Simulated scan of single mutants.
Amino acid sequence: MVNFNGRLLEKGTAFLDESNRGLRYGDALFETIRVVNSKIFFWEPHYLRLMASMRIMRLPIPMHFTMEQLGEEILQTLKANSLESKAARVRLTVFRDQGGYYTPTSTDVSYIIEASALETPFYTSSQQPYEVELFKDHYLDAGLLSTIKSSNKLVNILAGVFASENGYQNCLLLNQHKNVIEASNGNLFLIKNNTIKTPPITQGCLNGVLRKQLIEIIKKTPEFELEEEPISPFELQKADEMFITNVISGITSVTKYRKKQYNNEVAKTLLGRLNAHVRLL
């Protein structure tokens, strides 16, 4: 079942047409959310990011778009898909209603909520090889629009295609200053000795929800020092560890970049603390 503006519809039901502005112009935002046993992980940060992103994109915010109402719609969608007692991935998409060309004429928005099952309720550590490479064909701008989860994700898509075609598990994206800012599907962290480094939002990386949670965990961990500083490609081969974060997979350790092999001891420590953190939500 799919939730369209509060109506539960069978999957495959035709409820959008060719005039949809998300399809035509990418005039849409989305949040990807992890839910376990009807507990919405990090719901308040997700909601606040959505509201901030809607303001950046000048999308009107309806009165009924409260955290409580949207949270209830998510839970109703899970129940309709028999996922209320399981681990699930939820996608909430918000788009401007049809009308106009580049300049919209509508002052209304619509939303879609989708849900699918996840394999495990906990964040886990994979033992599989995970090799990455730089994606240099296109760059992300170090600007505000790059920090939001809009449906304009062409660079991420092309980086994913490049990785698939060349036998990599992921690609790292660059901004126009040739600094490394993120992976195609998550935020980036490097570890050297006891210093954990991640690019600041001003570099154009996604304002990731799990990124924020992990930063707070690191700040409360005395054995590590956090730096939010630009990362040059030269630093990748000097690091002891590299990992990627997002709210669905948690922490994904990179095992190889070119000739550099990485360990994952710090990542496993942080993964344990992240799982302890979500149990308290």
Rank of each mutant, 00 (worst) to 15 (best):
S125P: 00
Y111E: 07
E84P: 02
F224R: 07
I157M: 14
L92N: 01
Q128E: 08
V36H: 12
M1F: 02
Q261Y: 15
G143Y: 09
S116H: 03
S85Q: 13
Q128S: 03
Q69M: 02
E225A: 10
F41Y: 14
M51Y: 02
R55V: 00
Q237G: 13
K220M: 10
R89Q: 08
K178G: 01
G167A: 00
T107E: 05
I40Y: 09
H64K: 13
P104K: 06
I157W: 12
R55E: 08
Y257E: 13
F243Q: 08
G167E: 02
T147L: 09
N166G: 04
N20D: 14
S253C: 13
L274D: 10
F4T: 00
S249G: 09
P62Q: 05
T245M: 10
E182P: 12
A80F: 05
T32L: 06
I215T: 12
K197F: 06
N207V: 04
L83Y: 06
N187Y: 11
E131G: 11
K259R: 15
V254D: 00
L214C: 08
P230N: 12
G12N: 03
I112E: 01
T252P: 03
M51T: 02
R24I: 05
T269L: 06
Y25A: 01
R89T: 05
F15M: 06
L190K: 09
M57K: 05
R91A: 00
N166A: 04
P60L: 04
E10R: 08
E119Y: 02
V109H: 01
I218C: 15
Q237I: 15
R24V: 02
G167H: 03
N193R: 10
I218A: 14
E131R: 15
E223I: 15
R7D: 04
L70K: 07
A88C: 06
L140S: 11
L280W: 01
M67Q: 11
G204E: 04
G272F: 07
P60M: 04
E182G: 14
I191A: 10
C205F: 09
K178D: 12
N179E: 15
N175Q: 10
N263S: 11
L118T: 03
P121T: 08
R49G: 10
K11T: 04
G22A: 15
R58P: 01
Y168P: 07
R7G: 04
E18C: 07
E84C: 09
S82N: 13
L118K: 05
R91Q: 11
N187P: 11
